[in-house]
Computed example of a mutant assay.
Amino acid sequence: MITVNIAFCVKNLAKGSEKVRKKLITDPDFNVAEYGCTSFCGLCRNYYVAIVNGKPVKADSPDELLDNIYNYVDEELFDGI
């Protein structure tokens, strides 16, 4: 089983991705964390962003971010299993 680690920048959480984090922490398949900075400041400033197993996943809205995270996990992480 692949461990899915999802990280959020606290500034991006304050911007609106907190809604996404709250949904994801209820899913036992995800390890969700928040950091002061995820080192993706350019993306984080302009988009809603989560770092999924080290890769930034971005979106224009929190709802789109949640969809993009699930799509990334399904297509990129679990496709090869």
Score class of each variant (00 low, 15 high):
A50W: 00
G80L: 08
A50L: 01
K15Q: 10
A14K: 13
V10N: 15
L24M: 07
I51G: 01
M1D: 12
A59R: 05
I69P: 01
V52F: 02
K23G: 00
N5F: 14
Y70G: 02
A59I: 02
D79G: 13
I81T: 06
E18R: 12
D67A: 11
S61N: 09
F40T: 04
N71S: 14
L77I: 13
C9G: 10
V52I: 06
D29I: 07
I2L: 15
N5C: 12
L43P: 02
T26D: 10
G16Q: 06
L24G: 02
D60Y: 09
G16H: 06
D79S: 14
T38P: 00
T38V: 08
Y70S: 07
K55A: 09
A59W: 03
A33I: 02
N5L: 15
K55P: 02
K55M: 08
I81V: 12
S17V: 01
L65T: 03
P56E: 05
A59N: 00
C41V: 04
R21L: 08
I69V: 12
V4Y: 06
K19E: 10
N5S: 15
K22H: 07
V20T: 05
G54L: 05
N5Q: 15
V32G: 00
P62G: 08
E18L: 12
F40P: 01
N5R: 15
L43A: 14
L13G: 03
Y72T: 04
F78I: 03
N71P: 06
E75H: 09
D74E: 14
T26A: 13
G54I: 03
N68R: 15
I25N: 04
Y70M: 12
Y48R: 09
C41Q: 07
I6W: 02
M1Q: 10
E76I: 10
T3Y: 11
K55C: 04
G42Y: 07
V73C: 03
D29K: 12
Y35R: 10
S39Q: 07
L43M: 13
G42R: 09
R45C: 08
D67N: 13
D60N: 13
D67V: 08
I81W: 09
I25D: 01
Y35S: 09
I25Q: 09
D27E: 12
E76P: 01
N53F: 00
Y72L: 03
V49T: 15
L65N: 05
V32E: 00
T3R: 15
K19A: 09
F40A: 08
Y48L: 07
A7R: 15
D27M: 04
V32I: 06
T38W: 00
G16V: 05
M1A: 14
I6A: 01
R21Y: 03
I2G: 07
I81Y: 11
C9N: 11
I6R: 06
R45H: 11
K19I: 05
D67C: 04
D60V: 13
D29H: 11
K11T: 12
I69W: 01
G54E: 01
D67R: 15
D63I: 06
Y47R: 13
D67H: 12
A14G: 12
V4L: 05
N46R: 15
N68L: 03
D60R: 09
N53W: 02
L13C: 05
Y47S: 11
G36R: 06
R21H: 06
S39G: 04
F40E: 06
N53Q: 05
D74S: 14
Y47M: 11
Y47V: 05
R45G: 09
I81D: 07
V49C: 10
Y70N: 11
D29L: 13
G54Q: 07
V20K: 02
G42M: 06
